[in-house]
């Protein structure tokens, strides 16, 4: 089971959204990290077959997904960033409708719906209109529809946006469980969503994949560059302007504890710490809003 992305490019007029991306994606959870506008959604929509690449191809088990057509879509599921649904549908009607679209027969549909109503904790709201559910519950319906056909490839675009921390953990666990012998690709700019469950990560910037690998391998790029230290409150503003600060915490009115990435220690009391994916992300995107502390 392998999804191969061969040199794909997507142009919108003069703007290049995805720039010659090549990747081989095997089973497991894949985190696609990148700032807003990095090209993650465009790349995912090309993998989903919604967008046609300007150049290059996406192949599943070495066959172009365009040629596979229905056979590919039968093994595939996608949850876009905005979960669009019909306002007239309740949860059960919606799942029945999508199950039919996914080619499940009546018997399979019934079984799968019952299964996912339980797994997703939707049983009590099965007759409720989706539009009346909370954002978190709507996302659960979105995930449930994506899992109905037992897909070999599951692509989720920002699946946890707008969710509270508890629900984020809940989704992570479900996806982690589901990912055995499947390709699960999660696009996000929230590093913690994939840090603990992704077997592999791909980091995207300006339409290109700039790094691919396991979390531990990726973070070796900044091994010895992540520090924790203390700066005085008065100096913090200037410190933040010059250094990539990952985290800050006020100790008291005069001192601030900081975690930062830099080539050399920037304070006398700094000590080197083991890097995390979040550190790497911020280091890579230090020139963007998110990299300057806009990270969730």
């Amino acid at each position: 089971m392998e999804l191969t992305i061969r040199n794909i490019t997507k142009d919108y007029g003069n703007k290049r959204a995805v720039d010659h991306v090549s990747m081989k994606i095997s089973s497991g959870v894949w985190g696609l990290l990148g700032a807003n506008g990095a090209g993650k959604t465009t790349l995912m929509r090309m993998i989903a077959g919604i967008l046609k690449p300007t150049d290059g191809e996406v192949c599943y088990n070495n066959v172009n997904i365009i040629n596979l057509g229905e056979a590919y879509r039968g093994r595939f599921s996608y949850l876009p960033q905005t979960f669009g649904f019909y306002p007239e549908f309740n949860v059960q009607d919606y799942l029945e409708y999508i199950a039919c679209l996914k080619g499940l027969n009546r018997h399979e549909t019934k079984g799968k719906i019952e299964q996912f109503l339980d797994i997703m904790g939707l049983r009590d709201v099965r007759k409720k209109k989706i539009k009346k559910l909370s954002g978190g519950m709507q996302r659960r319906v979105g995930i449930a529809q994506a899992l109905l056909n037992d897909p070999e490839i599951l692509v989720l675009d920002e699946p946890t946006s707008g969710l509270d921390p508890g629900e984020r953990v809940y989704f992570r666990n479900i996806l982690s469980e589901f990912s055995k012998d499947r390709i699960v690709m999660i696009s996000t700019h929230i590093v913690s969503d994939v840090e603990y469950i992704a077997a592999q990560n791909a980091i995207m910037k300006d339409g290109r994949i700039i790094a691919v690998g396991k979390t531990d391998d990726l973070v070796t790029q900044i091994q010895g560059k992540v520090f924790e230290g203390v700066v005085s409150s008065g100096m913090y503003e200037g410190f933040e302007q010059t250094v990539c600060v990952v985290n800050m915490k006020n100790i008291d009115q005069e001192r601030v504890a900081v975690r930062y990435v830099a080539d050399v220690p920037m304070t006398q009391n700094s000590r080197s710490v083991y890097p995390r994916l979040e550190d790497l992300y911020l280091w890579i995107f230090r020139d963007t809003t998110e990299g300057r502390g806009g990270l969730s």
Binding site: A48, G49, R73, G74, F76, T82, G84, Y86, I98, K102
Partner: peptide
């Protein structure tokens, strides 16, 4: 469907194009 992106889910299903 294009506006709400419901189309993206439908389009990527087995019967999401010609039959739908």
């Amino acid at each position: 469907d294009y506006q709400t992106d419901a189309d993206a889910i439908q389009r990527t299903t087995k019967k999401g194009r010609l039959p739908l």
